[in-house]
Nucleic acid binder design. Structure first.
Lengths: 193, 193
DNA sequence: GCCCCATCTTGCCAATTGGCAAGAAATGAA
DNA sequence: TTCATTTCTTGCCAATTGGCAAGATGGGGC
């Protein structure tokens, strides 16, 4: 039970004091998620506010024709939850699945709100997570609209190279908004350069 | 000074009591934004939490080549702000511009936090705005990835027909992630059906 | 080792979308 | 009104991406 990384993460935000961070970390429980297992299944309410310590995950939804669409990848050191399900207590449309064996620390919605109440500083952290997620999603949206498939691929390759070791290309392709066929061709072209 | 619509909006969320809503509304100041004027210019910090009562706005950013990309449209009855700039007190990359003469009610970042402190119920409302914005952006992202340009066009036409009366097609095209040329062709094809 | 199944690549062709430029239509200012 | 400017449409062609299916590759289980 070593919450070192969680504690470090909390402190690095510069939003909570050491004593608060310790109080917060105390509430988190350990969770292990074996490869391929779901941390959250579509249809359920996201109720775990998870700090991912080890491993990689992906989030995916189904489009109207039933195809899987990868909506995001999760790396160690991130808070993992389906925001709209978690906070509005509604059924998630998204799945969160372990790409590798994962380990982390979580609290429930109930505990989160208790912490918000007990340690007002922690609200700042909570808001920070939301705002950061929002901002990243906006950047991604702008990128999807303005850049070509190849540029999006290169960008992911530079900024998240580990993902290519962890996720099948089919998942990466749908994340980039293209088919696996196109991704394969783009990779071929790019490797020539 | 008639804050009727603001009050109704607050109450319809079912997150604040009548007395709280009245206390909240009291803090808002009136703002008029003439057509084409900027409510927020890129480079500045978004400091107004604005409830739009009348008129339409659009948000847009510039891509790496300097082209305008419309990232969203704002209709009456919405809270308008650039979330990441507002909450993290950083310079906005986005502009918010009036498409028509607009009127609304706003509070500053400072006032918002005071209200959060004075009326804890209002925090729920604040979070609701964030979560709702996040959820809508995620839906839009999924839609952009999974649907064709024509489907995206038809969807916007059904769900936000007023926009076509308020914004030039060039803006709508970039919002849909296509060129104005393509949009024009799609409209032609669609009108035949 | 061997087999099976999922993953990845490739070829073929079609559909979608973009780039550019010219012209038509609409809007706004004087 | 008239003129100038922006917005919108259209034609032509090129580039990108998708759909499908076959084949190659690779990893996991036995």
């Amino acid at each position: 039970m070593d919450k070192e990384t969680l504690l470090t993460f909390l402190l690095n935000t510069n939003l909570v004091s050491l004593s608060s961070a310790q109080g917060i970390a105390q509430q988190f429980s350990h969770k292990a998620i074996p490869k391929n297992q779901f941390h959250l299944a579509a249809g359920k309410i996201s109720d775990q506010y998870l700090f991912l310590e080890k491993g990689y995950m992906r989030t995916f939804a189904h489009d109207t024709e039933g195809n899987e669409v990868t909506t995001g990848f999760c790396s160690p050191g991130q808070i993992i939850l389906e925001i709209s399900s978690f906070f509005s207590r509604t059924r998630s449309k998204e799945n969160i699945q372990a790409l590798t064996d994962c380990e982390g620390w979580y609290i429930t919605y109930e505990q989160l709100n208790q912490l918000f109440h007990a340690l007002p500083e922690f609200r700042e952290f909570g808001r920070w997570v939301l705002v950061k997620g929002f901002s990243e999603l906006k950047n991604r949206m702008l990128f999807m609209i303005t850049e070509t498939a190849e540029e999006r691929y290169v960008h992911l390759l530079k900024n998240n190279p580990e993902i290519f070791q962890q996720a099948p290309l089919k998942s990466i392709a749908s994340y980039l908004g293209i088919t696996d066929t196109s991704l394969s061709r783009i990779r071929k072209e790019f490797s020539k350069k």
